[in-house]
Write a protein that binds this DNA or RNA. Structure first.
Lengths: 117, 117
DNA sequence: CCAAGTGTTTAGTGATTACTAAACACATAA
DNA sequence: TTATGTGTTTAGTAATCACTAAACACTTGG
């Protein structure tokens, strides 16, 4: 998964294998954009679309909107509000995220999710 | 700290109290932009500037660039690359961040930083 | 007084963004 | 064979973005 477009295409194709209704045209229509535009985005011929379109794509492809936004280089206003409340904290979190090996992050998240820490 | 501009202004004024060289004009010059432009940004009359300018502002004001970028609604390409490698993991991290009480996040970060977990 | 330093207002602009519309090419099914 | 569905190419555009430049207003120190 090395780019925004590649991620979109793979995700869409994975869904298409399991259920109908995930052709490029169908998904474009769900997201309210032209198929030609989605085609270019999926092949990284175009930059990631705007915030609202990314959100609709996330809904159509059943993935987390904040994550898809982040992949597209954007931060949702929701998340932005959280960050603005505690800038120095977020600064630390981001630095840790960059330093930590993946396995450590994975373990960290699991522990947080399970509440045993 | 409720907006990008307010954060910038408070940070700059805090630095100005301790040392000289943090007038609006000086900081604008450090960041390579016009004072008029910085003035508008600090008062939220203008949207946060572009990625490169945010990075230079972060350097001038001695804050974490990724955090300032996030405050400005952008994700650095560095961070984007990390996210693209493990989308489903980042999805979880973001969801946890939104759910967790601040104290929990604080404790989490401290523990991660100290390496005892 | 006036020079230097502070922040602010006004007016503008080239480049980029975030798309649309229409036609094209190919495969499969009826 | 022709209709339907798939993705792709080409050409264009309105609006927004990311700023600049210059003048204005105020305060303070020499």
């Amino acid at each position: 998964m090395d780019t925004f477009g590649t991620y979109l295409r793979k995700r869409r194709e994975a869904l298409a294998l399991k259920r109908a209704g995930f052709s490029l045209r169908k998904v474009a229509s769900m997201a309210g954009i032209q198929p030609s535009y989605l085609s270019k985005i999926e092949r990284d011929q175009e930059a990631p679309p705007g915030e609202e379109t990314i959100k609709r794509l996330a809904a159509a492809l059943e993935v987390d909107a904040d994550m898809l936004l982040a992949m597209g280089g954007k931060v949702s206003s929701e998340l932005q509000a959280i960050i603005l409340k505690r800038p120095e904290l977020m600064s630390q979190v981001l630095q840790e995220l960059k330093k930590l090996p993946q396995s450590a992050v994975l373990r960290l998240v699991r522990e947080v999710r399970d509440g045993n820490w």
